[in-house]
Design a protein around this nucleic acid. Structure first.
Lengths: 249, 249
DNA sequence: AAAAAAATTCAACGATTGTTGAAGAATCCT
DNA sequence: AGGATTCTTCAACAATCGTTGAATTTTTTT
């Protein structure tokens, strides 16, 4: 009863002059749609909220007020911490980009080391490219899932892809391309790029998690099932690479 | 001299009470960034403008005023012809959807007829799926190119994909899936759906024309080169299908 | 040619947008 | 403890958003 009363007060406190931040947040975290907002610092909460909303509705489909509301902070706080809206978007994008690049670089180096002097196979390289994206959300890390959907949104956008994606991801991708060239000696160079393009597309749609495949297959396949998605994808893409990149064919 | 004067008047006529629409438009079409707006009826001009702008900037990234401006019509006209903004968006999406479906259906039926009693091969089916998108813009039909970019945008969006894409494209896709099942007897059914998913992703990114591949390959490949994109894609995807759908492997 | 219908323009509405400066509260440093 | 710094709130700004009703022009019909 006492507990319930406090929650109702909390729900109406939009105009009450509050000065008890910590207590208020902890109570609000219990029965709100914004989970455990009290735990993380506000600056990261804003990034989390922006990440999720932009991944689902796009940059222009989300307002700073929606972001602030989901993060349970004041409207002015995103601007204070990140400046313009576009800067907030970049901050969201950059936050996990280096983490992902590091994971991928380690995976590539590991599979190169494990391989013989001829270098790793196509399958091993593609696996090193894909598995790092599976790892972060084996436990249900919704933040990482949202980020991957955001990357899919950016990578498919004619506006953002050239700037953001190229700047942050191309250097590492070029390393992967070099490894693929070694694994496919004699391949026409442009075909390697086309094959990577198809790989990128398949991966992008997977990360977007639109749920269309679920409907089409009547529940036989699930967009949320990353493990299966990547597991099938590796031999699929590798066979495609071999088909158009091996000179004998 | 006389010609140039008329153009200047035309450029300043935003507040002049005009009643000579036809003449005015023809003159304006010569030196404006909005080409041949006088030729097509206004209702289609609005669809064209919305198509191009939404394909490039997304639904929320475009205002009705921008659309009206590009179509060279009044701000209120889109609302008069199509109602709400969302209805205009759907009108754009639907306009060419049936045309595309018809092209694909004809292509599928043709290749089924050409094949023997065992039905067409995987390559033939995928070709029938892809080539209809190449045809409309072999001549530089920018309208069709914009539409395909719009479909890519929609198909990659968690918000729109389930509703619009499913409603307008799933029926025909199911026919293609059935043909693929025939071409790949004994294949695990879910793998067919996964393979189609990868195909859909590769196609989507190709239609989006982000220009990233151009940068990555230092101009070796071009996002605008649909012919090559589809030509390489068919054997690539077909090999992938065979890899994960043929029971022997 | 007059009347009816459709197409187009104009001006304006309330709502919402991103952003800011000043005021206030919390935290840190010495 | 107290001054400096950082963080957070509040209220408000001009600009722009989608949409609409009434007026006007153009086209179609009679």
């Amino acid at each position: 009863m006492n507990f319930f009363l406090l929650c109702c007060i909390d729900a109406l406190d939009s105009l009450a002059p509050i000065s008890e931040n910590r207590d208020n947040e902890e109570i609000g975290a219990i029965m709100n749609d914004k989970p455990d907002n009290s735990a993380r610092p506000r600056k990261e909460r804003i990034l989390d909220a922006a990440e999720e909303l932009i991944a689902h509705h796009g940059y222009d489909g989300v307002t700073l007020r929606q972001i602030a509301n989901k993060a349970d902070v004041d409207v002015a706080l995103p601007s204070y911490h990140f400046g313009k809206k576009h800067d907030l978007f970049e901050a969201v994008f950059v936050r996990r980009a280096e983490v992902l690049n590091d994971l991928r670089l380690s995976a590539l180096e590991a599979c190169e080391e494990a391989a013989g002097p001829d270098g790793p196979t196509v399958e091993a390289i593609i696996e090193a490219f894909l598995r790092p994206m599976e790892l972060p959300h084996e436990e249900d890390d919704e933040g990482w899932r949202n980020y991957l959907a955001l990357v899919a949104y950016v990578n498919n956008s004619p506006v953002w892809a050239r700037e953001l994606m190229t700047r942050h991801f191309n250097p590492l991708i070029k390393r992967y391309i070099e490894a693929l060239k070694r694994a496919l000696p004699g391949a026409p160079e442009e075909n390697i790029y086309w094959a990577y393009h198809y790989l990128s597309g398949s991966l992008t749609l997977t990360m977007a998690r639109t749920g269309r495949l679920d409907i089409l297959s009547h529940g036989l396949c699930s967009s949320e099932d990353f493990k299966t998605a990547y597991g099938r994808m590796i031999p699929f893409i590798a066979a495609g690479f071999r088909q158009i990149c091996e000179p004998g064919k």
